[in-house]
Write a protein that binds this DNA or RNA. Structure first.
Lengths: 205, 205
DNA sequence: TGTACATCAGTGAACGCGCGTTCACTGATGTAC
DNA sequence: TGTACATCAGTGAACGCGCGTTCACTGATGTAC
């Protein structure tokens, strides 16, 4: 709600790109990716259905931008979690993993767009850069945790894959509500358990 | 190709339900869930666009049936993998996990329908039964592996969650091509690594 | 400071398309006698 | 074995809808003088 509450000027919205991205995310959350349309996003933003064109080109362009935004938010959430955790590299890695899970459960629609859709254009420069950045952070976290435990550097790549898969699996099943055993558990114990599984998968390779 | 190659009789297809499911899967593979439509499925099956109605009701009904078929195929693939593995309970669990991954990578579209879509009706009896069956098999596998290693029975539920999340994460990232480190690896080494991560996550809880 | 004008952002009518749904129909099948 | 008829499965025309796209437009903004 950065916008003034006075009757909106019809022309020259001024912040339409951002407003459209917010509307797009809200549409995604409310109606799901399958019912997503440029027209309904424009309507939600209170703008004619042709207005998004200059900003995003077409639906794919809008979804691509939204997806990139998702990867940036993922990194933010993880950074936040790490800042609140102990400085110890293993604790940092665990915090990053829990951040990943927290992002997925509180941004289910976005998470699906990022990991279970072909609609965004993943060769888009902005998007692929955002995704690469998220991945790079993970690599660093895993490597530092492993160094602190004296693990073999040769197996870092494998450990990254293993840790990512574990976090991703937990995140995906929890966000889609399929892991009932864990989702009904009180969150402390769940986090503790997730953290253990996560560091285990990164360090035992 | 159970059908005769003679010019098909126009009326009374005889096997339309099965033919529609095959066409639906092919459409899903070719065009993805987002472009899936009853009309295109019917066209692919060589039948009028109203013909599917008596069999499935609507698009949701067809996707629900297809999703249930997916869960049954998943169990089949896992059973197959287990039959080819050593009788040792840990080896059986690992085979089930690798089967899960194999299913995901060779049935990407179906896998997405099963785990990353809201469109199938998951309260449908046939579908929820098929899904529950897949889950029950996993529970058994984990429990038996844990008994063979003397693990605490109280933590079985947690171990199931952990093992499932690990298998699921690997499966999802591999099938969507995002785990480049692993997908470019030769498959022997990948399976070996995946098996290790899997049994580790089930037994170390 | 004030006027003229170019640029830019969003409007709204029009279009063609594929979708799901309805409905009267028709041809194949199977059963009764 | 043969005929009559009910049932059933799939047809095809028609409909209304929301979609993306095009295009001439209009009103706000910003710059030159």
């Amino acid at each position: 709600m950065t916008e003034t509450s006075a009757p909106r000027a019809r022309y020259h919205h001024g912040n339409l790109r951002v407003a459209l991205l917010e509307a797009a995310e809200a549409e995604l959350v409310d109606k799901g990716l399958e019912a997503f349309s440029l027209r309904s996003v424009a309507a939600r933003a209170g703008v004619t259905h042709t207005a998004p064109k200059p900003h995003f080109g077409n639906t794919e362009g809008l979804l691509t931008a939204l997806c990139a935004l998702g990867f940036r938010r993922l990194v933010e959430v993880q950074d936040h979690a790490k800042a609140a955790a102990a400085a110890d590299p293993v604790a940092q890695l665990e915090a990053a993993g829990l951040g990943y899970i927290a992002f997925a459960t509180s941004n289910q629609a976005l998470f699906r767009l990022m990991f279970a859709s072909n609609r965004p254009n993943f060769s888009d420069q902005d998007l692929s850069q955002a995704a690469r950045r998220a991945f790079a952070a993970l690599e660093t976290d895993v490597a530092q945790a492993r160094r602190s435990k004296g693990c073999d550097q040769d197996d870092d790549a494998l450990a990254v894959a293993s840790a990512w898969a574990t976090a991703h699996g937990l995140a995906d099943l929890l966000s889609s509500g399929r892991l009932r055993a864990l989702s009904t558990m009180e969150s402390n114990r769940r986090d503790e358990m997730a953290a253990r599984v996560l560091s285990n998968s990164a360090l035992s390779v």
